[in-house]
Design a binder for these strands. Structure first.
Lengths: 195, 195
DNA sequence: TCTTGATTACACAGACCTGTGTACTTTACT
DNA sequence: AGTAAAGTACACAGGTCTGTGTAATCAAGA
């Protein structure tokens, strides 16, 4: 039974390395040779697991298509906490923007499967916002969830260009304003102090 | 005296074509051969005008670094009109996102000159917002101008992925909410009706 | 022990890319 | 007419990339 397990383990190793390189340097900028060499396997082995680079790209993006973490916190804190997490993500380690937006921008074929995955991801994130907004009983959760998503994507784009994580804090404040204007009560201590 | 004029005209032809192809298909996806062939000149001629592709890229981005159009409209209408123009830009013709953000995402060298140009562009746009906000006497024009820029960039990113110009309208509404929360009076007819 | 499947090393095809070298022609000014 | 700049055609070097073909090796289960 180790046969199937080995196969899955190898695929995971390939995908982990592909993720690091694709995200860190760009899909077009990283060759299949580089990925194989980084793992220490032959290019032939890689092609035995993924029949083409395109399918590897699709698998790379699909692996990032994971649901947002569940939480028991109140909806407002989850929403605002999302921006704080974004700020930490930008600040820590390599940050190269949204892998889905990057992939769509990098692949010139408009019918590439990556587009569908990117759309699915954005819709998933918007759904996460929307469900929280429904619990907050706002008037138009569809619209407001989209607007919050715009702030996230805007902060990401600005962070790439500026290299400054503080844009996420600005997005957080804007999100708080939008929520307040929609009738949501914002707890008094908006930023989590270093207790 | 036609010597200098010819040279400038040829450079413009090259840059116009480079702009169309670089923006439409991506910088890495378009080769120098393709640009020259599209114009109908030899590759050698192109290299006589731009000594390397990198310099052509820089010239392409610099040419897009133009100031926002001046207007006599009231500041609020200029700000909101900016989002309406964005919506039309997304809807009409080829839209492939922000050329500066794309360039930064596509070029893996972190020290590329494109980064500086992209930052200059974003700062220029933010300055445009900020100057209008100063005239509106808002409390924190630095912060609010950044937040408006986040909405623009977020709408752009979302438009690439979704292919739907309506996201710009959502950004416009969010901008109106932020302005109102900052004490700015929004004229009653927010959307220009098809009168 | 034998078989089967995975992996490896390595060469290679075919395409594309950036950039250069060169000899020839065109164009425009003197 | 002569000269100098610019453009053209075309080959080519040297690199990268995706994907395949092949023969040898290794490991595990029957």
């Amino acid at each position: 039974m180790t046969r199937a397990a080995d196969k899955a383990a190898m695929q995971e190793r390939i995908l982990r390395t592909a993720d690091r390189l694709f995200y860190g340097q760009g899909i077009r900028a990283v060759g299949v040779d580089t990925i194989a060499a980084e793992i220490g396997i032959s290019k032939r082995t890689l092609y035995n697991h993924f029949p083409s680079k395109d399918e590897l790209i699709v698998a790379y993006l699909s692996r990032r298509l994971n649901p947002a973490p569940a939480s028991d916190l109140p909806p407002v804190q989850q929403i605002l906490g999302n921006f704080e997490r974004l700020e930490r993500t930008i600040a820590g380690g390599v940050f190269r923007g949204c892998p889905f937006v990057n992939a769509v921008a990098e692949l010139k074929e408009p019918a590439h499967a990556a587009n569908k995955i990117a759309l699915a991801f954005k819709e998933q994130r918007r759904g996460w916002f929307r469900d929280l907004l429904v619990r907050l009983d706002v008037d138009d959760p569809e619209m407001l969830s989209l607007q919050l998503l715009l702030l996230v994507d805007g902060a990401i784009a600005a962070a790439i260009v500026r290299g400054d994580p503080k844009v996420a804090a600005a997005a957080r404040e804007a999100a708080a304003v939008l929520l307040k204007a929609a009738g949501v009560k914002i707890p008094r201590s908006p930023r989590p102090g270093p207790s």
